[in-house]
Design a protein around this nucleic acid. Structure first.
Lengths: 126, 126
DNA sequence: CTAAGACCTGACATTGACGTCAGAGGCAAG
DNA sequence: CTTGCCTCTGACGTCAATGTCAGGTCTTAG
């Protein structure tokens, strides 16, 4: 398929796909006229890349761990594997951080609700 | 206290504190010579602001919810309160997203571990 | 054949939370 | 008074993942 279709099916912009290729996260075969062509598999790959971006990994970091996706059986991915573990931990810590922030907001919400209840004693959900 | 001490105690840069003030997140009293002075309370406020930044809120959004911190009892914070609920939900969704990414990494880790175990059958943790 | 629409490269624009630097003034200790 | 550190304002720099535009080529439906 061509780049427009891949973009549509993976839910990203054409611009992003070209950027991913530039960053070494994605490869394409080229038609004689220079247009990029992709296989079905690339759809999932792009979704994975997006997932990792959403988890806060940078292009560089994604590039570093991709060997674990592409050739999990090769010895050359020692560094990549280390990175994978690191990123997993970073995500866990980030989740904890978000949970603490959510707790703070929950507390604020409770306090505000209490005050609001007092202000409008007989007008709930207005 | 002056800005350097606040920065140290709250764990942020002096530059950041001035930026927060510029964004309306923090206020200071000024000495006759123009230097900023802060009370003890501001330490906690700065930590809260940092917490919200870490949770992905922008300066603008933090400014929008701060009325709920400063005057939780006032009617004027309707919009702020709405925003508070929205952000809480956004954080929850973000946590779910991160958890999915972590699951994906865990799977990758398992697969890679399996392959590595096969490659070096009698050399664990080398 | 031809027009519309997808695609190409290259380059500049954007956004947000800062870093950093310049040039100037403030303040406590010796 | 001076030395050294803190602070001030203002302004430009940064980084990363895109958006967007220009000027040109390719493909395909009619």
């Amino acid at each position: 398929m061509r780049i427009g279709e891949l973009a549509g099916r993976a839910g990203v912009s054409v611009r992003s796909l070209r950027y991913y290729e530039e960053q070494g996260l994605l490869t394409s075969t080229r038609s004689p006229s220079g247009q990029r062509h992709y296989t079905e598999d690339e759809v999932e790959r792009v979704r994975l890349i997006q997932c990792l971006y959403a988890a806060g990994l940078s292009s560089r970091t994604i590039a570093e761990v991709l060997p674990c996706v592409d050739s999990p059986s090769e010895r050359n991915s020692d560094e990549a594997f280390e990175r994978l573990l690191q990123e997993r931990d970073r995500i866990s810590r980030h989740i904890d951080e978000l949970a603490r922030a959510r707790d703070a907001l929950d507390l604020l919400i409770d306090v505000n609700r209490a005050h609001r209840a007092q202000l409008t004693p007989r007008r709930p959900r207005a």
